[in-house]
């Protein structure tokens, strides 16, 4: 396999999974070749239907994703999947096990599944994930599914900036609706009660209906989020969910929402890159100031409060961006 940016970009556009996987890795690791290849493939992005799937641990997101892949394949679509799992905050390592539930598709050349660890870099998760989505999009996958536990701002950004955001819940977690964090309830375009054959599914459904009704009262919209019951393990309800996803996509395309969503995602990526690069340069400039060391030790000693110290240091930075 070619190891140049041009070679990998050509491979991505020729829909070679190996090239796509390598480019995702470069982008995730900050390899400069990744940026060059991304610039080449970028004009070929913007076509895929991006579906975000989130919900509490144990809700059955991976199993549901697996069933969704099967249904989308039945409908003749090629499917990309980005499965995000948490990295250990202690070692930085991770055990990524989402794809265990999806290995039935390992021999299907129309399916490309990529696991990602959250790695804990500042603002880096959403960027790395959006990069991976761009790669699969450029490879011509009709549908790209991002699956993640919706905890933290980064992960919320990822799912809420998808075209169709699916919130999965299950009966039996105690206060069921508590498990759906405030931001997620607002972000959801489709709601799923998975493991719907289990006891408590009816009670969960009633609670969700109430919450969605309240949401409708405060934030009226043209789209009423459907509530779908599934048993992902058997595939029960997954065709209905896919119908609803198709209906949502058709609505987005007719209303201009598809383009608007893409615009918002592009802007988000641009702003987070800007923030990251600007923060890095400003921080480096601040720490290079002669007074920095003295101020840091004064803060540590408690001789000056951190607010005043930060203001003082920022005041004497002279920025020269290269």
């Amino acid at each position: 396999m070619s190891q140049t940016a041009a070679g990998i970009a050509a491979g991505v556009l020729a829909r070679e999974i190996g090239a796509g996987a390598r480019l995702i890795r470069w982008l995730e690791e900050g390899d400069p070749r990744g940026r060059d290849a991304l610039a080449t493939i970028y004009p070929h992005t913007g076509q895929a239907h991006l579906i975000g799937i989130t919900g509490p641990p144990g809700a059955g997101k991976s199993t549901l994703t697996n069933a969704l892949i099967s249904e989308q394949r039945k409908r003749g679509r090629r499917v990309g999947v980005i499965a995000v799992d948490p990295s250990s905050p202690f070692s930085g390592g991770a055990v990524l096990g989402d794809r265990v539930r999806m290995q039935t598709h390992a021999l299907d050349t129309g399916v490309f599944i990529r696991s990602m660890g959250t790695r804990g870099q500042l603002g880096g998760l959403s960027r790395a994930t959006f990069d991976a989505i761009l790669v699969q999009d450029a490879m011509g996958y009709d549908v790209v599914i991002v699956e993640t536990v919706g905890v933290g701002q980064d992960e919320l950004d990822i799912v809420s900036l998808a075209h169709s955001t699916v919130i999965v819940s299950v009966p039996g977690l105690g206060d069921e609706v508590q498990a759906i964090k405030a931001g997620l309830l607002e972000a959801g375009d489709l709601f799923v009660v998975n493991k719907a054959d289990r006891e408590g599914a009816d009670a969960l459904t009633r609670q969700l209906e109430l919450m969605l009704h309240l949401r409708e009262q405060t934030r009226p919209s043209d789209w009423t989020p459907p509530l779908v019951h599934t048993t992902a393990l058997t595939g029960q309800g997954v065709a209905t969910l896919t119908d609803e996803l198709d209906r949502h996509l058709a609505m987005l395309k007719a209303s201009g929402g598809f383009a608007a969503c893409l615009k918002e995602r592009n802007r988000h990526m641009f702003e987070s890159l800007l923030q990251e690069q600007a923060a890095r340069q400003i921080l480096a400039a601040a720490l290079a100031e002669p007074s920095a060391a003295q101020l840091i030790s004064a803060v540590e000693q408690g001789d000056i409060d951190p607010y005043s110290a930060a203001a003082q240091l920022v005041g004497c930075i002279s920025l020269k961006f290269s």
């Binding site: 070692s91 390592g93 265990v100 021999l107």
Partner: peptide
């Protein structure tokens, strides 16, 4: 994982391909 590596598990009953 504790050594800082990213581990992906295939699950059981896989073929070589």
């Amino acid at each position: 994982r504790d050594a800082g590596f990213e581990v992906i598990f295939t699950g059981l009953k896989q073929t070589a391909e």
